[in-house]
Amino acid sequence: MPVMTYIEGISNGLRYEMRRDPSVFILGEDVGVYGGAFKVTKGFIDEFGPERVYDTPLAESAIMGVGVGAALVGLRPVVEFQFSDFITSGFNQVVNNAGTMHFRSGFPLPVVIRCPSGAGVHGGPFHSQNPESWFTHVPGLKVVAPSTPYDAKGLIIAAIRDNNPVLYFEHKFLYRRIKEDVPEGEVIVEIGKADLKREGSDLSVVCYGAAVHLALEAAERLQQEGISVEVLDMRSLYPYDKEAIVRTVKKTGRVMVAHEDWLTGGVGGEFAAFISQECFEMLDAPVTRLASADCPYPFSSILEEHMLITTDKVYAGLKKLAQY
């Protein structure tokens, strides 16, 4: 089994689907000749040609709208926003046009919206955002956020095969930092299913994306101190795996919800509300939320580190939770 980085997992899954299904095509800024700002589609144009690896004008609303139109006529477009921050320029097409299409018209709308997101790459306020929670509020959209190469591949394939608009948040910090064995062939990670990334008995961390790795590192440290931490990677944010949350809460009774996105209004608030309502009797401590500070993503490293959720912060938060 080949070892793949996270970004290779995405590329490999995309290529696999494009070889399998001629209706799959990619469109976005600089995706063709250049291979995408992050090289996710490097070499694709040589294999699939310029029509299926479509370089568009710089116009996010049109890119998204064209993706919607192509999906209407029976294709399976994968729209790439160069940075997820720029999705605001195509927001209306995503939310109002794509999000309501099946409901109001009966047309299936198989469009994947790839969103390179996340901080820790010195991107500053407009190349670091995690805008997933703007979309986990919208019936008609699905939202996924893989944390590993295997899940990256399995979720991109599942997203392409889904007959609904799926926003796929891929974390830029993880692109080349994590590797694992990933099968060359078919890998499918079902949308809506969480994954227990680490088993434990004292505390649970319900998280996704880059925060999964912070939680795993913190759990490793706490293991040395005799505290056993379970890490539940949600992977899908909308719909999300309620059963998996109930299972882990039942087991540990102490839960931290963690993500890199801003705290207030983040999708973690939804998880926390669900736990409070559905798992109240199982809890031995209040549900804790940990996220990045409610502040635009700053540029300078020292400021960014201060603002972001970090392993140290997760570690400290979990320690406190254990002592409650």
Partner: peptide, 28 residues
């Protein structure tokens, strides 16, 4: 759906890129 008529959303202008996408998609 059966007639290939696509209803608008209220947001004026939004259907222009979508119609363009349908045109390009059919050509593909």
């Amino acid at each position: 759906k059966s007639r290939r008529i696509v209803g608008m959303i209220s947001h004026l202008g939004s259907m222009i890129p979508v119609a363009v996408g349908a045109a390009i998609g059919c050509r593909m």
